[in-house]
């Protein structure tokens, strides 16, 4: 008897409908994916679901009060709200360049928070 489970892949805008089937030996088969990333996503989603997280942090001396930032790799889903709480305490100073690593190894995940854009220092 095989069991199955449906997932929508979030890797790209195509949003493939994936079916994960388990056979008697708990071997997994993934169907419905149009590329390799779909299979990887399905496997990860079952064991260690992760998401790219984008947010903002306060910035001093920039054109705006907030700087958009993002994780540089998918971040463990279970820790997202801890990450958001942590970001409240962060303040960056302009200038910043896109890709600058602002926080290394955030919450001991090995993942970094990087600046999503340049922001010059203004007077």
């Amino acid at each position: 008897m095989t069991n199955s489970q449906n997932l929508i892949c979030v890797t790209c805008p195509r949003g493939c409908s994936l079916t994960i089937s388990y056979d008697d030996q708990d071997q997994i088969t993934i169907t419905g994916n149009q590329c390799k990333r779909g299979a990887a996503y399905a496997k990860a989603e079952l064991s260690d679901p992760r998401r790219m997280i984008a947010s903002t942090v306060r910035i001093r001396g920039g054109i705006h009060k907030m700087l958009p930032i993002s994780t540089n790799a998918p971040f463990p889903k279970g820790k997202i709200m801890n990450l958001m709480a942590f970001l409240k305490s962060v303040e960056i100073s302009a200038p910043v360049k896109m890709g600058d690593i602002l926080i290394e190894n955030v919450l001991n995940t090995g993942i970094a928070m990087v600046a999503s854009r340049n922001m010059e220092k203004i007077d």
């Binding site: 984008a54 947010s55 958009p68 999503s116 854009r117 340049n118």
Partner: peptide
């Protein structure tokens, strides 16, 4: 649009909106 999901076609990368613009 600080979220990612931009640029897969053009750059082959999943970029946040401000990075795509940058």
């Amino acid at each position: 649009c600080v979220h990612s999901g931009f640029g897969l076609e053009t750059f082959g990368e999943d970029l946040p909106g401000p990075s795509y613009a940058q």
